[in-house]
Design a protein around this nucleic acid. Structure first.
Lengths: 250, 250
DNA sequence: CTGGCTATGTTCGATAGCGCACGCTGGACA
DNA sequence: TGTCCAGCGTGCGCTATCGAACATAGCCAG
């Protein structure tokens, strides 16, 4: 594997003060996150938190009849397993790797110990959680009011923001599971975007050709989430948001 | 008014240990929460947190075109203004009183001070926040996959759980705004429930006649949220040690 | 080169919810 | 007692999405 790995590829870890980072560093464990890997299951006991670096993970809620919907996307800007420090130990959600890559994991107890110091780690994690809540809430509204095509744009942009390239490895079938719609609905929406020259796709590979065009086609939900995440996490250190929408906001 | 008011009608306040409660009690201020009152607006600076006692408040996300959707309901089991302690100061949501009543408010700084002690108040609030996250996420899935009638049942039950009676004062028009659907859709669903003998309604007043029947008609989302809230907040109470986060974890 | 699998394209009827328009009614209020 | 109107009922056409079935096309293994 020619790629180099470093915990600080994760923005939260990168934002930690030296003392806090050093206390955790020895316990961070690089783990591969292959496509489809389930980091935790609905209701299961969480043993670790995960800091993705190059992977992207979806938080899914699965209904009894098997239908599902993605409620949030977590990449190198975030952490998985917030219920470990929020106090619940488990959540009713499922975390599935949506884009293969790597990340670091940390034993639950190490994170709890650090969290209980009530220092920078606590405040950083709570701010991130606040951003995550915004993403979930906006997803709820988007599910209610916006079209499949708009939601596809939102999903593409949210994923793109968490990748170093403009290529997503993702079949339409998988996307449909994330969005909680039919595969055919994704085919139709993606076909429309392709005819408009915004993307090109072929057999599980999607290239974004015209990001500004996508940002024009997306519903407001993307910008709301993006703006709120930036606001909440702007002052946390070396996070790269050069490609960001609305960078001159506020 | 003949009704007596006490802060401990709010479950979170009631769950505080004596020392913590006493520190806050002098700063708690009884406030009326009339129907339609906006406790905070999207993006506005929050000056207080609110602990409802008899009122019920809806958290709404409002889109640019005026469409809206409720993402959570908060009553005497909870608190409004979590972004004050989560660190964001504001949120993109709007809080509207859905059922008139009373509550106590507390200056943001008093809550922050208490929160920063990193004691029972912090852990109690975080557990509640975790329950709130579950409610939001389940709402997102419900918006995607379930019918208006199922969602109406969920909404009725969630409201009922936060009221001392089985009567809701609420027009179908208002409910439609909460659920993010048309008024006619609510009329149709409510008519169906009434013909089934589960509820009776008339001009802004809804009586629940058969709660078990409603629980049978509702989608799973209600039970998921309820179970998770009970689990997260079951062991709260004076003198309990749930604030020793994972202290004796195996 | 060929079979077989996976990903995508397409069609068709069914349905839920939308947007709109209009009608009815009970109760508040003059 | 009469008026008004908020709250509710209902009908109509429309669209997005669903559910299911089937057709094509790229790609890999043998």
């Amino acid at each position: 594997m020619p790629v180099s790995h470093a915990p600080k590829q994760n923005h939260l870890l990168a934002a930690l003060p030296v003392a806090e980072f050093d206390r955790l560093a020895d316990h961070l464990e690089l783990v591969a996150m292959p496509l489809g890997k389930v980091l935790y299951e609905s209701g299961g006991q969480l043993q670790h938190v995960y800091f993705p670096t190059t992977a992207i993970v979806s938080l899914l809620y699965v209904l009894e009849n098997g239908a599902s919907a993605e409620i949030a996307i977590v990449g190198n800007e975030g952490i998985l397993g917030i219920s470990i420090f929020m106090g619940g130990e488990t959540t009713p959600s499922r975390a599935v790797v949506q884009s293969a890559g790597y990340g670091y994991r940390l034993g639950a107890q190490y994170l709890r110990n650090e969290f209980n110091r009530a220092g920078p780690v606590l405040h950083l994690l709570l701010r991130y959680t606040q951003a995550l809540i915004t993403q979930m809430a906006q997803t709820a509204v988007c599910n209610r009011h916006h079209s499949v095509e708009q939601q596809l744009c939102r999903w593409l942009l949210l994923s793109l923001d968490r990748l170093p390239t403009t290529t997503l490895t993702m079949t339409q079938e998988l996307i449909s599971n994330m969005l909680g719609v039919r595969r055919e609905g994704v085919t139709e929406a993606a076909g429309h975007l392709q005819r408009a020259g915004l993307i090109h796709y072929s057999r599980g590979r999607i290239d974004v050709l015209d990001r500004p065009g996508l940002e024009h086609a997306v519903c407001e939900c993307y910008a709301v989430v993006k703006r709120e995440s930036d606001r909440l996490l702007a002052d946390i250190g070396p996070g790269d948001k050069s490609h960001m929408l609305g960078a001159s906001e506020s």
